[in-house]
Design a protein around this nucleic acid. Sequence first.
DNA 1: TATGTGGTGTTATATTATAACATAACGGAT
DNA 2: ATCCGTTATGTTATAATATAACACCACATA
Lengths: 159, 159
Amino acid sequence: MPLGFEKHDHSTCIKDALETAESYCASENLQLTKTRRRVLELLLHEHKALGAYDILATLSKEGLGTQPPVVYRALDFLVANGFVHKIEKLNAYSACTHPGQSHTPVFMICHKCNAVVEAQTKPLRGFLGVAAKAAGFLIERTVIEAVGLCPTCQENTPA
Amino acid sequence: MPLGFEKHDHSTCIKDALETAESYCASENLQLTKTRRRVLELLLHEHKALGAYDILATLSKEGLGTQPPVVYRALDFLVANGFVHKIEKLNAYSACTHPGQSHTPVFMICHKCNAVVEAQTKPLRGFLGVAAKAAGFLIERTVIEAVGLCPTCQENTPA
DNA sequence: TATGTGGTGTTATATTATAACATAACGGAT
DNA sequence: ATCCGTTATGTTATAATATAACACCACATA
C-alpha cells in the first residue's frame, strides 16, 4: 500500500485532491471559497505540516487577507470537512491524503525534515476501541501521531 | 485491569507516586527540587490535565515563582523523566499514573468533565510499529489520545 | 421587502511557550 | 583553596498560537 514516503507524481496528487474536495463540496452544498481553496492548495503542495501563521503569510502576500481569523476560519472549515488534519504535536496543519475515506488517521512526523505522512491502520482503531470499552469510555475523536525519522533521514543520520 | 475512571483511594495513589518519583530520582542522581516536587504533587491531585499557567498561578500563591519559565522548566524535567505527560490535544499536562513502567501511553480525555485517564495498551505499540516498518519510518515517540465521554458523563448525557 | 444564514473584514486580546542573560550552588580536578 | 564545569534558579522580554467580538455583506426565500 502507498504509505507515502516514496516519490510520486505530486502535481497529480494535488489536482486529484482538489477535484475531490470540489465535488464533495458541490454535493454537500459547502462553499469552497477562494481563501479556503487556496489554503487547501498550499497545504497540498507540501508533504509537511504548515503553521497557521505560515499560511497566513502567503495569503497576505496574495491579497487574500492579513489577520489571523482569516486563516483560522479557513482551517476550521477544511478540518471540519475532513480535507485537512491538525497535527497536534506540531500545532500545525496538513492536507488529508485520503480524502473521502472515513478513517482514523495516523501521522508519522519526521523531526529532522518535518515530513508528515498520513497512514491508514484500521486495526488500530479496533485496539483503541477495546481499551476504551474496558474503561467504559466513548471515543469521539482520536489523535495518533508518531514522531521519529523518515527513511531518507535515517540514511543520512547513521547510528 | 485498573483503567482509571473508577473511584479509588486518591491520597494513597498520590503518596505512592511521589515515593516512586523520589526513589527513582535518588537512584538516578536527579534532583527532585522543591518546585519540581510541588508541580508533580499538584498534577497528582487531579485526574485531569492542568495548563502550565494554572500550575503557575498556584506556584505563585505559594511563593515558588511567578514567571513562565519557572513552571515550564519544572514540567520539562518531569516530562523528560516520565513523571508527567503532555496532553497535546489540550496543551496541558497530566501526572503519569504508571510511573516506572516503560509504556506507550494512551490517554482518554473526557471533553465534558475534562477527566484524563492514562491507559496501557501494549498491542497498540505493535500495530503502530508494523505500520511504521512498512513505511520505513523509525518511531521515537508516540502521541495517542482519544477524546470523548467518560462513563459518568455518558450517564448524565442521555442520547 | 423582511429576515435568516453563512461568509468576510477588522480590532483587540487571550493563551501557550521560549529566548536570552544574569546569578547561585555544588562537586571534582588541580 | 581556587578554578571550572555542570545544573538549577531568577528575571525580563518576546515569540508563537488562537479566539472573542462586532460590523458588514451577499444571497436565498418566505
